[in-house]
Design a protein around this nucleic acid. Structure first.
Length: 223
DNA sequence: ATATGATCATTT
DNA sequence: AAATGATCATAT
């Protein structure tokens, strides 16, 4: 019933057919229970959309639609169409990254083609009643790609030179580096200020909400 | 521990 | 109110 879409156009058609439906309606079709809230089910919305669109389930490190090279991202928005959250992209490699080029990076590869699924998700709206907006495929323009590359290169240079300890979420215009872990005690290997191995909090790359807002504006001509 | 899916909640 | 830092569930 929910096979993987065979083509880009089929993926578009199928995703856009979801516009206007509530998360509760989709969950019912799939016989999936709706949690009371997302506090303990933060990935629930993303996984629901993966299933209804026939994405490859599981935690494999590859695009959601491998044969189409498309990544699926849900995007929580308010009623004005503004993103409520930043968008997680991938974990940041902290070791063995000297010489890594932008075009080889996971950030670049994941963002080459994204199916954005906006969801009206203000916190006061019960989860089951949250509405799906109009999904759209996006590929970064040359200008967007260049800006992303610049942020990425600055962040990666700092990581390579042992400066991870003072990278704050505020660094980067479109792309930021923030903790990505079970809690603040989780540890991974990284490079210290003197080039020595250290243990630090795992980080991930995120797209800032101001950037995803510009994508929505570009797509829908929003305010 | 790392990778998938993200949102929560405190700080600014 | 927006943004940064912290956190939750699950599979490998």
């Amino acid at each position: 019933m929910f096979t993987s879409p065979a083509s880009l156009s089929e993926l578009t058609t199928r995703s856009q057919a979801l516009a206007g439906l509530s998360l509760g309606q989709i969950a019912t079709q799939l016989s999936i229970p709706v949690p009371e809230n997302l506090k303990k089910d933060k990935g629930w919305v993303g996984q629901l959309l993966e299933q209804v669109l026939g994405a490859t389930a599981g935690s494999k490190a590859e695009p959601d639609f491998p044969h189409l090279a498309v990544e699926l991202k849900t995007l929580p928005i308010d009623q004005c169409g503004k993103p409520l959250e930043s968008t997680y992209v991938c974990v940041a490699p902290l070791t063995g990254v000297a010489g890594l080029q932008w075009h080889e990076s996971w950030v670049c590869r994941k963002l080459q083609h994204v199916l954005w699924v906006p969801i009206l998700a203000e916190r006061h709206i019960p989860l089951a009643e949250r509405m799906i907006g109009t999904p759209f495929l996006w590929q970064p323009s040359a200008i967007q790609q260049q800006a992303l590359q610049q942020d990425w290169e600055e962040l990666m240079e700092k990581i390579t030179l042992g400066g991870i300890a003072d990278i704050k979420g505020a660094q980067g215009k479109l792309l930021q580096l923030r903790p990505k872990a079970a809690n603040s005690k989780a540890m991974t290997n990284a490079i210290g200020a003197n080039g020595e191995p250290i243990r630090t909090l795992p980080r991930g790359f995120y797209l800032k909400a101001s950037f995803t807002a510009s994508l929505l504006k570009q797509q829908f001509n929003l305010l």
